[in-house]
Design a protein around this nucleic acid. Structure first.
Length: 949
RNA sequence: AGGACCAUAGCUCAGUUGGUUAGAGCGCCACGUUGACAUCGUGGAGGUCGGCGGUUCAAAUCCGCCUGGUCCUACCA
């Protein structure tokens, strides 16, 4: 083995091997365990969130597989409608200077597929780099044939049950992308805006109570004035009671619109009058519904002013009794330009009463970045009320459990106020809606055009045109857990692996995806999609900021694995920016943070860092320091293995039998291993990956390496040690390491496989279940019978003595290598026996020339002293003691004991404590008091002795 | 406006049902290359657990209020 751990040399090799050997496919035996990967965008690339999430899923998958479960990690990618279409549109524009409309629908879709084939392998290659043990033979895509079938089936069946309907509704319209988007795709941003107060003249000579001939309404959106269909006042408002039922003349337009009474109008705000524009505002739409007002649309699909308004009733039918004329001056103007003109014209007409500056929030499309416009359009909707009920119940009754629990509240809150889901998108890339129209606009929903004809008895000469729209991406990904398993066919896979065991996802996706999966899956399979949802936080940068291209703080997981030089990193962060003016600052910050670029760390170290930071219900600040630390940990494991191999390879490790004698250290480390196995298993069961990684780290570094390997040296290197003892120590070295590798494998798959290949043969014949890969070895099960408390106590004692001597060396400035003479005294018979049994260990680890028991403490020479329990460890130091320094140290120690003693005495002096606390707690305090007092006594004696010099 | 979560060492974080001498890693200080490892070893310094109040024999832990931070939902005529 190389002296230093070099991940790049082992990682790709092992992944290819595992894949070639089909190690990722379900075994077909044991209790099923399945995870469905949240499908990443097929043309995307792996970001830190993916890497984090994939690490968690892979750890669970490898662990369960080793436990003997029939394990499937289902992989696949999402077609991601808007994101992919935009990407390809940009590409086509850049390369060919054409828009998608220049190409036409069919040619454009071809381009998207081309791009998918070209770049779709990128993210799956990256997934492989992460070590993800997904079953590639079952890889799926949300637009593959199987999904096509599933989507058609679901749509048609929901339609047949009236759970899907089509209608003219107010939706969030993206004027740049020319499509409806869902509430969830709208991002609200705070802005400074203006608030214009306009006068609307009362018609027919009416006046207010105060005698004015106009009402005052205020708006942040003057351009929607053209579509007003009423002014509302509060029904309780005495100021306007007499005007309800009368009219105002809409300025600039001249339309007579009614004054209505509606609770939406707040008497305390502004004048108490509100303009009502049902076709351009969600609240007004509700008012319109209550008041039976016409919907007057004045915007085109580009959010420009129409030549003439379009008026509809609430069912979406055109209305002829509303005068559609609009002032010609505004026709074709964009909404913001129209706003300026209208404000100017109102002012010119003397109708602008006041302009305020206010802070308000505006809706932006999260993809286009354009301001979203509520717009009246024909769309398809899922009626969610009936679907939501069982979906809520499934979480309430525990069929689905969120980890951590508190996300259930978030889920309930959202599910209970669910609006119907607009599923149609005016895009080209996606699942076409299975609806056909005849020449007169009748709609036929069926799986295919043929089925539509058959079902409705339409002859072949009737021309049917398919709906132009596609479905929201989340409609198909909502079928992910069962669609990937072959539904609507009742496949073996579906029977075996559905419901899936756990969904691993970010909280930001609960509404988009988790909730909809639960609804659709329950509806179509009668089963929950998953039994548990493990919700993780967002991966942020070291300062806690969200990683984003525009902030220039993005880390690429692959760069952390392979390393990247500074210039490339700067180029990556500043190249191709939306706001190039930021490039300089980003370059500077990057050069400051990574003066040497980023070193290679390897996949295992990256995975370990994620796991150790994966604490529940909280975002993680990615810590480069920890990444370095865990790379070092890999190196530690690597070198410990080198030591084991150097001492075991070609030696008798007891695999072939032969007499075996186990040392205290052997029994102790085996005992500790049992506890570590139990801890890690429990931590994984509880999704506490941080605890699992911590337990392993502690065991490997602080116990196995720091103590056990050192304790093995005296046995292996001492000619006096018996062959049985050496065999026992070699066997323990090898077996414990082999078990550690298995415990570590789900977290750090590569290094463990690499080392295991060399260590496992030394541990004995490969197990029955396993083949020649650690991946298929059994998960270590803690054996209570091998927990050895005596050995643990003895080793604690041994450590105590060794640390005491090291302490004295440090304090007295004695070179670490200088051989010392040590005396032990004042201890019990047990201490004396321990000395006799561990003379060799003590001498080697503490670098002692000799160590003896001093029966009569009064004979003790002048010495530096440390305590181990009641026992004193003496390093005779005639003439070498720095009197003042030692007195100061002792004074400090005594002071510390005094504080401890004082605290306990106070407690024990409190009668209610003694009376009310459990006896065990009181006794514990008494024991501690005795200990501290004894320690203090020794310290005082020492002090007096030195003071007397 | 409503809700959620967070606040523990310089930094990133653990701390199970209240009882620990409040922990880890990184960083820092001192010392150290004998054959696993300087991506290392040994020893050490460093915390009034955000503040105030309450419950309790006992609070980092439970409750209330306050401050600071993050996020979600809603509203903004």
């Amino acid at each position: 083995m190389d002296k230093t751990y070099q991940p790049e040399q082992i990682e790709s090799r092992w992944y290819e091997r595992w894949e070639a050997d089909n190690r990722f496919a379900p075994s077909g035996q044991g209790e099923p365990f399945s995870i469905m990967i949240p499908p990443p965008n097929v043309t995307g690339s792996l970001h830190m969130g993916h890497a984090f999430q994939d690490t968690i899923m892979d750890t669970l998958t490898r662990w369960r597989r080793m436990q003997g479960r029939n394990t499937l990690w289902q992989v696949g990618t999402d077609h991601a409608g808007i994101a992919t279409q935009m990407l390809v549109e940009r590409k086509v524009a850049a390369e060919e200077g054409k828009s998608r409309h220049d190409l036409g629908r069919e040619a454009f879709i071809d381009k998207v597929w081309e791009w998918k084939h070209e770049s779709g392998g990128h993210i799956t290659r990256q997934l492989r780099r992460m070590g993800a043990s997904v079953d590639w033979s079952r890889e799926r895509f949300t637009m593959d044939d199987g999904f096509y079938q599933a989507v058609q089936e679901v749509f048609v069946r929901l339609y047949e049950e009236d759970l899907i309907y089509r209608g003219k509704r107010l939706v969030n319209w993206d004027p740049t992308l020319h499509t409806a988007i869902s509430d969830l795709e709208v991002e609200n941003r705070d802005q400074q805006g203006q608030f214009w107060h306009f006068r609307y003249p009362l018609a027919d000579g009416a006046t207010t109570e105060a005698g004015r001939d106009h009402l005052v309404v205020a708006t942040t959106r003057p351009e929607t004035l053209l579509g007003d269909s009423a002014v509302a006042v509060n029904p309780e408002d005495p100021r306007y009671a007499s005007l309800v039922g009368k009219f105002v003349t809409l300025p600039l337009v001249g339309r007579r619109i009614p004054i209505v009474a509606d609770e939406h109008a707040d008497m305390d705000k502004g004048s108490g009058c509100v303009k009502i524009t049902p076709a351009h505002d969600f609240n007004d739409y509700e008012v319109g519904k209550r008041q039976g007002l016409p919907l007057i649309n004045v915007f085109s699909r580009d959010a420009a002013i129409l030549e003439a308004a379009e008026a509809f009733d609430l069912q979406g039918r055109p209305l002829d009794d509303v005068d559609p004329s609009l002032p010609a001056a505004y026709a074709g103007l964009g909404r913001f330009e129209a706003r300026e003109r209208i404000v100017a014209d109102m002012e010119a007409a003397g109708l602008l009463e006041q302009v305020e500056t206010v802070s308000n929030t505006l809706p932006y499309g999260d993809r286009s970045g354009d301001v979203i416009e509520p717009l009246l359009t024909d769309q398809w909707f899922v009626a969610v009320e009936e679907l939501a009920k069982p979906a809520i119940a499934a979480v309430e009754n525990g069929d689905i459990e969120f980890v951590p629990r508190n996300y259930e509240n978030m889920y309930f809150a959202w599910m209970r106020e669910l609006q119907d889901w607009c599923i149609s998108r005016q895009l080209w890339w996606g699942h076409r809606i299975p609806a056909w129209y005849d020449a007169s606009g009748n709609v036929y929903v069926a799986r295919t055009a043929e089925e539509a004809r058959a079902k409705h008895g339409l002859s072949d000469d009737i021309v049917l045109t398919q709906d132009e729209d596609v479905l929201d991406t989340w409609f198909s990904s909502g079928l992910w857990t069962f669609g990937t398993l072959g539904w609507p066919e009742q496949t073996e896979a579906l029977k075996t692996f559905h419901p899936s065991s756990v969904l691993v996802t970010g909280f930001d996706i609960i509404f988009f995806w988790v909730a909809r999966m639960i609804m659709l899956t329950l509806k179509f399979t009668g089963e929950v999609p998953f039994k548990q949802v493990y919700v993780h936080g967002l991966v942020r940068d070291g300062q806690g900021h969200k990683m984003s291209k525009s902030k220039g703080n993005v880390l690429d997981p692959i760069d952390l694995i392979d390393g990247i030089d500074l210039d490339s990193l700067v180029e990556k962060r500043t190249g191709n920016m939306m706001q190039p003016q930021k490039a300089k600052a980003i370059a500077k910050a990057t050069r400051g943070e990574f003066p040497e670029g980023i070193e290679p760390h390897g996949t295992d170290a990256l995975r370990y860092t994620f796991l150790s930071q994966a604490t529940t219900g909280r975002d993680i600040k990615f810590d480069m320091g920890r990444l370095d630390g865990y790379r070092n940990f890999c190196n530690k494991l690597w070198n410990a293995s080198r030591y084991v191999l150097m001492n075991a390879e070609g030696q008798d490790c007891g695999a072939e039998g032969g007499e075996v004698e186990l040392s205290l250290a052997d029994r102790w480390i085996v005992s500790q291993l049992q506890q570590t196995a139990a801890q890690i298993t429990r931590a994984l069961e509880e999704y506490r990956f941080d605890h699992a990684s911590q337990a392993l780290y502690d065991f490997v570094w602080n116990e196995y390496c720091d103590w056990y390997l050192e304790l093995s040296k005296p046995v292996l290197w001492d000619d006096a040690a018996s062959e049985a003892a050496k065999r026992g120590t070699r066997r323990t070295l090898v077996r414990v390491l082999e078990a550690v590798l298995r415990l570590a494998h789900p977290m750090m798959p590569y290094i463990t496989e690499e080392i295991w290949q060399r260590v496992a043969p030394l541990a004995g014949p490969l197990s029955q279940t396993g083949g020649d890969s650690i991946m298929v070895q059994p998960w270590p099960v803690a054996d209570e019978g091998r927990v050895d408390e005596d050995a643990t106590r003895d080793i604690e004692w041994l450590k105590g003595v060794i640390v005491a001597v090291r302490n004295i060396r440090a304090e007295m400035n004695i070179a670490p290598g200088k051989p010392l003479e040590v005396l032990l005294t004042k201890g019990s018979e047990a201490d004396r026996a321990r000395l006799a049994a561990n003379r060799l260990f003590l001498s080697k680890l503490a670098k002692l020339e000799r160590i003896d028991w001093l029966a009569d403490p009064d004979q003790a020479p002048l010495a530096a002293t440390q305590l181990v329990g009641d026992m004193e460890v003496l390093v005779p130091m005639a003439g070498l003691i720095d009197k003042d320094a030692e007195l100061a140290r002792l004074a400090k120690e005594i002071d510390k004991q005094d504080k401890l003693i004082g605290g306990i005495e106070k407690k024990l002096g409190n009668e209610s404590f003694v009376a009310k606390a459990p006896e065990a707690v009181v006794q514990k305090e008494r024991d501690k008091l005795a200990d501290f007092a004894a320690t203090r006594k020794v310290l005082v004696e020492q002090r007096d002795k030195i003071a007397a010099l």
